[in-house]
Amino acid sequence: MAPQLKLRELKPGFGAEILDVDLTTADNETLDAVVDTFNQRGAILLRGQEMEPDDLMSFISRFGQPEGHTQKQFTLPGYPEIFILSNREVDGKPIGAHNDGVGWHTDYSYKEEPVKCTMLYAKEVPPEGSDTLLADQCAAYNALSEERKAELDGLKLHHSYQHLMSTREFGRMELSEEMKAANPDVIHPLIRTHPANGRKALWVSTGTVKEIVGMPNPEGLELVDELVDFVTRDEFVHRHKWQVGDILMWDNRCTLHTGTVYDDTKYYRLMHRLWVKGDKPY
């Protein structure tokens, strides 16, 4: 019989903080219940964790096969699936990506099979700023009128890694031919069905989206912006304020997220990010 976890909603109808579970000592039944909670709730939070890299890899593997990273230079030595987010430098060189993930998006949306989930583990956090915001795209879809749902159903988005890297606010980059070949443009549905629970999500994003297929710009991108504005209204958004030892995981199949900036002249931040391989959106 599966154990009953002690839960607290992150916001009404979305996400769960899982209380009184130590991920390094929990038994298999408890960890299975953690995974099930994630699949049903869209996001989970566990505070006060003390995780070594091997612990992170063991835990993330319960959700599926860990996914690698497009950018390799900031992965943890010996752990290519653990990516470092930080503004710290060693010998004058950055140890991690800084201001990565600022702007509403879903991770790896420019891939044929975007990542299933994202996990962040907080090792060092500023006392202010650097919050992570999660938007519940299922709640946003459910809030649409039936007429609006019908208008949007069947629309497809053109996602492009090359477009993202050439237009992003922080650290624009011209891709090598090898990187372009490894990350070709993809087409994904605007309305996505969750494979684990059948719920529909208004699966819009920014950064990677180049156009709505069959709709001329700027009309298409204006519609994308309108939908992002809708999905990210306060009623659909949870703001996470970080503490050291937090593990926050969100389901990229039904959420939108963004990082926020902080005063990097006063504070340091250090996070470990892990991903799980996903499936083709439908």
Rank of each mutant, 00 (worst) to 15 (best):
T265S: 15
Y262E: 05
F230R: 05
D263C: 06
K241F: 01
H238T: 05
V228G: 04
T232M: 02
H238E: 07
D229M: 02
R233Y: 04
T255N: 11
W242E: 04
D263H: 03
T260Q: 09
W250A: 09
D264I: 06
W242L: 01
F230S: 00
Y268V: 11
M249D: 06
W250K: 03
W242A: 02
T265A: 14
I247H: 00
L248Q: 04
D246H: 00
I247N: 01
H240L: 02
T255S: 14
Q243N: 09
L256Q: 15
D263Y: 08
E235W: 05
L248V: 13
R253P: 05
T255F: 07
V237A: 05
T232Q: 06
D251V: 02
F236C: 11
D251Q: 05
E235K: 15
R269Q: 02
T260F: 09
D263F: 03
R269K: 11
F236A: 03
I247L: 15
W242R: 04
L270Y: 15
R239D: 03
N252R: 08
G245K: 05
R233D: 14
L256S: 14
D251A: 04
V228S: 06
W250H: 11
D251F: 10
D251R: 03
H238S: 07
W250C: 06
W242I: 05
V244Q: 09
H240N: 10
Y267S: 08
I247W: 00
H257W: 14
V231E: 04
C254M: 11
V237L: 09
T265K: 15
N252D: 07
L256T: 15
I247C: 13
C254G: 04
T255E: 12
Q243D: 03
V228C: 10
R239S: 10
W250S: 01
F230Q: 06
T232S: 09
H238K: 05
R253M: 09
D234L: 03
Y268G: 08
K241H: 13
F230P: 00
H238I: 03
I247R: 01
H240G: 03
R233S: 11
Y262M: 06
D229F: 01
L256P: 12
T255D: 10
C254D: 05
H238R: 03
C254W: 00
T258N: 05
M249T: 08
R269H: 04
Q243I: 00
F236P: 11
V228H: 12
Q243E: 13
D234C: 07
M249I: 15
K241R: 14
F236W: 09
V231H: 01
D263R: 09
W250F: 12
D263T: 08
D263N: 15
T255V: 09
V244A: 02
I247S: 07
D229Y: 01
D264N: 15
T255Y: 12
H257V: 12
I247P: 01
G245S: 05
G245A: 00
E235G: 11
R253E: 03
K266R: 15
V231Y: 06
R269D: 02
W250G: 02
K241W: 01
V228R: 13
G259H: 12
V244K: 12
Y268A: 08
Y262D: 07
K241E: 01
Y262S: 03
W250N: 07
V237S: 09
D264T: 08
Y262V: 06
R269N: 02
M249W: 11
V261G: 10
K266A: 10
Q243R: 13
D246G: 07
N252E: 06
D263E: 13
D263P: 10
V228N: 09
M249L: 13
